[in-house]
Measured scan of single mutants.
Amino acid sequence: TEYKLVVVGAGGVGKSALTIQLIQNHFVDEYDPTIEDSYRKQVVIDGETCLLDILDTAGQEEYSAMRDQYMRTGEGFLCVFAINNTKSFEDIHQYREQIKRVKDSDDVPMVLVGNKCDLAARTVESRQAQDLARSYGIPYIETSAKTRQGVEDAFYTLVREIRQH
């Protein structure tokens, strides 16, 4: 089974770092803004072998026109913010609204991801993020692309959301 996953969120929150940590098991430290990259990885989730087709997208506003296209083809979405960047957390709402509009559905598989949880300088409390996820009816997972904490959990949870859909 193949799953088309799309990673969305503001610029600099760590979308590529999360994806590369999942696929290649290493942490990319330097920031190089993405336009669009796709990665494929075969994994076993709950005993089922599946192929993850992951689209890593641009957070930069100037590429926002490309969003409709990949939102149409994606089956599930990782909505990523950084726990030390309140603005990126506030941006999640717009991504969710755009996904709902493009998919013409209120019920699209999504996982809210709070990345950079290895950093002490948190400005978005776990509780705020949990409340937001609960209001959307989606899971919330904290990750660190640096330490790998929660990385597999985030992507695998999204696959489970798609399966249950």
Score class of each variant (00 low, 15 high):
D46F: 05
A10Y: 05
V6W: 06
D131T: 06
V43M: 10
I35C: 04
Y39W: 03
N85T: 07
V124T: 10
A17I: 03
Q128S: 10
Q130G: 07
V6Q: 05
I35V: 05
P109D: 02
R127W: 11
Q98K: 13
E61L: 15
A58D: 04
K146T: 14
R101W: 04
I138Q: 02
Q21A: 13
A154T: 07
G76D: 01
D104E: 11
I45T: 06
L132T: 05
V124Y: 12
E161D: 09
T73L: 11
C79D: 02
I45G: 04
T1S: 08
R122A: 11
I141S: 04
D29K: 08
A133N: 04
A82E: 14
T34Q: 00
A154G: 05
R72S: 13
A17Q: 13
Y95W: 10
L132S: 05
G14W: 00
R96I: 15
H93Y: 10
V80M: 13
G11L: 15
Q42L: 06
D29C: 05
R122S: 13
L78S: 01
G114I: 03
G14R: 00
C50W: 12
K4Y: 04
T86V: 12
Q69T: 10
R96E: 04
G12K: 08
S144F: 03
L52D: 02
I54H: 00
A10D: 09
D104T: 08
G47E: 07
R163V: 07
I23S: 07
T123V: 10
R148N: 12
A129I: 13
N84K: 07
G74T: 12
V7M: 08
Y136T: 06
L22E: 14
I45L: 05
G14E: 00
E97S: 09
L22Q: 14
A82F: 00
A120P: 08
Y3N: 06
T73E: 15
E97P: 03
A65P: 14
D118M: 01
R96T: 11
A58W: 02
R96P: 05
G59F: 02
P33H: 02
Y63I: 14
I141H: 06
K15L: 00
G76H: 02
Y31Q: 02
T49H: 10
E62C: 14
T57E: 01
K146F: 15
V6M: 07
G14M: 00
K146L: 14
K87Q: 12
V6F: 07
M71L: 15
K4W: 02
T49N: 11
S38A: 04
V13S: 14
I138S: 05
R148C: 09
E142A: 04
D53S: 03
I138T: 04
E161R: 12
A133C: 07
I23C: 06
G9Y: 00
I92E: 02
E2V: 05
K4R: 10
Q42A: 10
L5H: 00
T49Q: 07
L5K: 00
A154D: 01
L51N: 09
V124F: 12
R72C: 08
T147K: 09
T49C: 11
R127C: 10
